[in-house]
Design a protein around this nucleic acid. Structure first.
Lengths: 147, 147
DNA sequence: TTTCGTGCAAAAGCTTTGCATTAGC
DNA sequence: GCTAATGCAAAGCTTTTGCACGAAA
């Protein structure tokens, strides 16, 4: 269920499997994007994935990166951290909700240890009548380098 | 410190005061935007504030709404909920971090009772070396109408 | 051969900016 | 009268889309 301790190789395999199950062809471009996501701890943006790949795949387009990300989103195999004033950031290693600590200065994003929000989520559902499906918990501040 | 139980009138006064302290002129447009924010529970977007105001202020521009919101942001008198694929939403009644429960279908946003994340925040600071200044906690799901 | 994916360029959507006009103090 | 704010239109950014070409089964 929880993939947090998967090796990059295993995680890559999982993502490939899920895309195949969605009747997607595994092209060199898609493989390359998945590979970056399975190996990145730094929560890359679409643009940074593209920049990293264009060295080895000179014709790789940013549109293809976005399209691949969208396939993964539909398959539930990537976590998207939305920002209105910056590029979105992606976590392919742990595609389920978990807290993030984000530097407002340099944009660094790190994963602290998990918190169990299940009890709180249940309380929120009782109180609001919502059926809660997911959540987002971000802490913002300055990383040790930027302080 | 905590303005959560302020009346709209009191909250409006507070915001006006803070803008004056920042050497801003209180124009009819700015007053109107603040007034909407002091009275809205529904976490309006810039566009919905504009739509609400344009009835009484037919020349009111969306740019002015955004500019006023930015003044309030700088003064710490408004909480901005960022979304990458939708308009941002604003809370002028409670400009400090607090959890939100958000309907993924209709966009309704409600404030459940507060959680005290202080202890968790301290733990995160210890663990990551960040100086954490603020946070965001959103629960996403379907409201009772949309289920 | 037929279907799907890629890559380019254009479009879309929200927010910001430049600038001339207008209003506030 | 001086400075700041408004409102329009244009620009900026990220992400999405349309479409012709190319690749894969």
């Amino acid at each position: 269920m929880n993939s947090s301790h998967n090796s990059p190789e295993k995680r890559l395999k999982e993502m490939l499997e899920k895309l195949k199950e969605s009747d997607c062809r595994i092209t060199p471009q898609r493989y390359a994007v998945l590979n970056v996501l399975a190996n990145s701890f730094e929560h890359p943006s679409a643009e940074s994935i593209h920049l990293e790949l264009i060295e080895n795949y000179p014709t790789m387009s940013l549109a293809t990166v976005y399209k691949t990300i969208n396939l993964l989103k539909r398959a539930g195999e990537i976590l998207e951290l939305e920002f209105s004033d910056l590029s979105n950031r992606y976590d392919g290693k742990k595609p389920y909700p978990h807290p993030h600590v984000i530097c407002s200065q340099c944009g660094k994003i790190v994963d602290p240890s998990h918190l169990n929000l299940e009890e709180i989520t249940n309380k929120m559902m009782e109180e609001t009548g919502f059926k809660i499906l997911t959540h987002r918990l971000d802490f913002y501040g300055l990383c040790s380098d930027c302080q």
